[in-house]
Design a protein around this nucleic acid. Structure first.
Lengths: 100, 100
DNA sequence: AAAGTATATGCGTTGACAGTTATATTTCTC
DNA sequence: GAGAAATATAACTGTCAACGCATATACTTT
């Protein structure tokens, strides 16, 4: 599962939002999401496979944590597009880039 | 179709990459992609609906153009996550944010 | 009429997503 | 050690949509 695919699902984006406020045990995430426990668990698995979250065991709980590095990758993907709105030389730059 | 969903598909990301080099008629895009003409046209429609590209008629051709604004939206979505890798205060900030 | 493109249609495969219920695993507690 | 808690995984069902192909057709402009 690529980060792109993982982020395409609203519930998964929601989970990331929740984790932005800090680490959280799976149970808290289940409580916060309007989904069944197995359902949340499946989305968490998807996020794990995308490298967007990590887990750590704490007693009988599983503590989930946002993995920012993978989002940094996304940020990197966005980079070559960024200058399109960062300045106003769009047309010129596009032209130069095209014939390079 | 949300930008997130649109970007989840590799062929669509590829189309955006091609358009980074400048405006292009649909035909050129079809030639560059290993897909049927209707296939490419469908992906272009998806990108249009996501606001990631725009079209303009030029004679019998349809000229496609990257719409950077929508990618800026994505950039914006990423913003609250950015400080997680921008500095090294992750734990502290997460803690503060959680109890705010 | 021809070119360029979009849209429609039909088909087939595959996967996403939801639900439910059950079970396996690990750890904690008594 | 029994049993409960927390979570993952499995298994099954069901629906719906994505994606590919191919072919056909509609539309607009030349």
């Amino acid at each position: 599962m690529t980060p792109f695919e993982a982020l395409a699902e609203p519930n998964r984006r929601r989970l990331l939002d929740l984790l932005r406020a800090g680490e959280r045990p799976a149970g808290e995430l289940v409580a916060a999401m309007d989904l069944s426990q197995p359902g949340v668990s499946k989305h968490l698995k998807a996020l794990r496979e995308a490298g967007l979250v990590s887990v750590r065991a704490d007693g009988q709980q599983r503590i989930y944590r946002l993995e920012a590095r993978k989002l940094a990758d996304l940020d990197l993907w966005l980079k070559p597009y960024r200058h399109f709105w960062a300045d106003h030389l769009d047309a010129l730059e596009a032209h130069l880039e095209r014939d390079q």
